[in-house]
Deep mutational scan, measured.
Amino acid sequence: GHYRIRINGREFEIRGISEEEIRHLEEALRNGADEKILKEIVDRLRG
């Protein structure tokens, strides 16, 4: 998958993330885990 997200007015492209991972992120966001989720995304993109 290849997705664009906007955070604090800046747009980011996220590549190589699966539909299942996105559902997991959405679930966590609904549970209020904003900073933790951003850290997970950044860590994943770093490799």
Rank of each mutant, 00 (worst) to 15 (best):
G1C: 14
G1M: 06
G1I: 06
H2K: 05
H2G: 14
H2S: 15
H2F: 14
Y3N: 02
Y3D: 01
Y3Q: 02
Y3K: 01
Y3H: 03
R4I: 15
R4C: 11
R4D: 01
I5G: 01
I5C: 14
I5W: 02
I5M: 02
R6W: 15
R6L: 14
R6P: 01
I7R: 00
I7G: 00
I7M: 03
I7C: 05
I7K: 00
N8L: 05
N8R: 03
N8I: 01
N8S: 04
N8K: 03
N8E: 04
N8T: 01
G9S: 02
G9D: 03
G9E: 02
G9A: 02
G9M: 01
G9H: 01
F12G: 00
E13Y: 15
E13A: 03
E13N: 04
E13R: 03
I14R: 00
I14M: 05
I14V: 05
I14L: 14
I14T: 01
I14C: 03
R15L: 05
R15D: 04
R15F: 13
G16Y: 09
G16T: 05
G16K: 04
G16R: 04
I17S: 03
I17G: 04
I17C: 07
E19L: 14
E19W: 11
E19T: 11
E20L: 08
E20F: 10
E20G: 08
E20W: 13
E20Y: 09
E20P: 06
E21R: 03
E21N: 08
E21I: 05
I22V: 07
I22L: 07
I22H: 03
I22A: 06
R23H: 09
H24T: 13
H24E: 14
H24A: 09
H24M: 14
H24N: 11
L25K: 00
L25Y: 03
L25I: 14
E26V: 08
E26F: 10
E26A: 05
E27W: 13
E27K: 09
E27P: 01
E27F: 11
A28D: 03
A28Q: 09
A28Y: 11
L29E: 03
L29K: 04
L29P: 00
R30M: 12
R30W: 08
R30T: 08
R30E: 07
N31K: 11
N31P: 03
N31C: 11
G32F: 07
G32K: 05
A33D: 09
A33C: 09
A33F: 09
A33G: 07
A33H: 07
E35K: 05
E35T: 08
E35P: 11
K36Q: 11
K36T: 11
I37S: 08
I37A: 10
L38D: 01
L38Y: 04
L38H: 01
K39G: 08
K39N: 11
K39T: 12
E40W: 15
E40V: 10
E40T: 10
I41R: 02
I41L: 11
I41H: 03
I41D: 00
I41A: 03
I41K: 02
V42P: 01
V42M: 09
V42G: 03
D43F: 04
D43R: 14
D43A: 12
D43S: 09
L45F: 13
L45V: 06
R46K: 13
R46Y: 09
R46T: 15
G47C: 14
